[in-house]
């Protein structure tokens, strides 16, 4: 029994190529978002355009909108995952601060 046949290599390489292609299609399909929605404890606390620069102070977090991008400027939680998750601008992207139950969404 041959360990690796030509067909195996062709199958593997074509699957990888298809997924690389798929990855780029997914990246292209992401549209720029229009509105920013900030939720705390599942209720909407802010809704506004992504094009308007502003800072939104919350109880434990500060959300900042600048140059069409949104990010968590600071949070008082221990893990700081939301701060580290960086800037978002595409429709469907989110930044979540689980300890303070804050979600930033782009629609």
């Amino acid at each position: 029994m041959k360990i690796l046949k030509k067909t195996d290599v062709i199958l593997s390489i074509s699957l990888i190529l298809i997924s690389v292609l798929g990855f780029f299609i997914v990246e292209l399909m992401k549209k720029d978002g229009k509105t920013v929605v900030v939720k705390q404890n599942n209720s909407v606390v802010y809704e506004g355009k992504i094009s308007e620069d502003r800072e939104i102070p919350l109880k434990h977090n500060t959300v900042k909108i600048k140059d069409g991008k949104v990010f968590m400027k600071c949070a008082d939680c221990k893990n700081q995952i939301c701060v580290k998750s960086g800037k978002i601008s595409k429709s469907g992207e989110t930044v979540v601060c689980l300890p303070n139950r804050v979600i930033i969404e782009i629609e």
């Binding site: 029994m1 360990i3 046949k5 067909t7 195996d8 199958l11 593997s12 699957l15």
Partner: peptide, 14 residues
């Protein structure tokens, strides 16, 4: 017969 167990396993994994 064209596929070895490696190819079969790749297809299965995907």
């Amino acid at each position: 017969p064209a596929l070895s167990p490696i190819g079969v396993s790749v297809a299965g994994g995907v």
